Simulated assay, not measured.
Amino acid sequence: MYSRRKVFRIAAAAGLVACLTAAAKPAIDPANPTCPLTPDWSANATMKLTPVAKKGGKVLLAEGRIDTGLPERLKTALAANPDISEVWLRSPGGDARAGNAAGRIIRSNFGLTTRIPAGWACFSACNFIFMGGQPRVIDPGGLFIVHMFTRTGDRSAIDMSVAMGTDATKELIGDIEQDAALLASEDNDFLIRMGVSRKLLTEVMYRQKALANAEDKSTRRCLTQVEVKAYNVANNNE
């Protein structure tokens, strides 16, 4: 039998382990309960591309917001560093079509791996850069975060059209709807070409709300390791 002192020491140690474990877990976003409150997706205003030596080879760190100039910068970086074997992604997203173009550039470099390392987050347009990899790796603890895209981000344009009257608002809504339909078609084609299940769009992405409302503020979803394999988002054997 254990002495009272030994029992106390065991209980105290167990309590310490529990506290440390709890402290290690990131806080959950109450509005998006599948995701952490503060995903690590880089604060760089534009995506920074940094070649570094890692894992016995060269890796391209791609960190920050996706802008229209990214595809050309990515093409230049890969041409200047032909020995790059992996692209590691950490981004809050950005320009959707630039993300698609960057994904196609990665795919054109045969055998180039994309990876979301543990603790890093790849959101929105970053998803499509990631899908360009062959193979694609999401390390345990890496976050592939999706949402329903919206073409209504320019609030000033919306407010101006409302101020101008009904006809201007109808015209803006028509333009938004047309562009959203084109982008959805482009996304569908992109997934087919990259070997990702189109069910990722219909069962996950397009089921998220584009904008939060008073009743439900959830606008994004963090996929589990089971889901990224089921939809062939990650297609490695690591």
Rank of each mutant, 00 (worst) to 15 (best):
T38D: 12
N232A: 15
K217A: 15
V137Q: 00
A77H: 05
E63Y: 02
S124H: 05
L78T: 08
A80Q: 12
I106A: 03
D40S: 15
H147L: 10
S124Y: 04
E171Y: 08
E171A: 12
G195D: 03
A214V: 11
A24G: 06
R4L: 15
L112T: 00
N81G: 00
C35I: 14
L49F: 12
R155W: 07
A101Q: 07
F190V: 02
P140W: 11
A163E: 14
L60C: 09
R207T: 08
A181Y: 02
S197R: 06
D175K: 11
A102Q: 01
L49K: 02
A168D: 12
K54W: 02
P82F: 01
R90S: 12
K229G: 06
M148Y: 04
F8D: 06
G99L: 05
D29K: 07
K217S: 14
K199N: 05
R73T: 10
V59G: 09
S185D: 09
L60K: 00
G99E: 03
M194S: 00
M47S: 10
R104W: 05
A80G: 00
A31Y: 14
I28A: 15
V7A: 10
I116S: 00
L211T: 13
I192R: 10
G165F: 10
V233G: 07
N236F: 02
A27I: 12
K58I: 12
Q208R: 12
T46E: 15
G15H: 14
L172R: 12
A212H: 10
R9P: 01
A80C: 03
T38L: 15
M131V: 03
R73K: 13
P82W: 06
Y2T: 15
L61M: 14
A163F: 13
W120E: 12
L37F: 09
G56H: 07
A18R: 10
R221I: 00
M164R: 13
F110S: 11
L16R: 09
D189M: 00
S3D: 13
R104C: 01
E238M: 14
R220A: 04
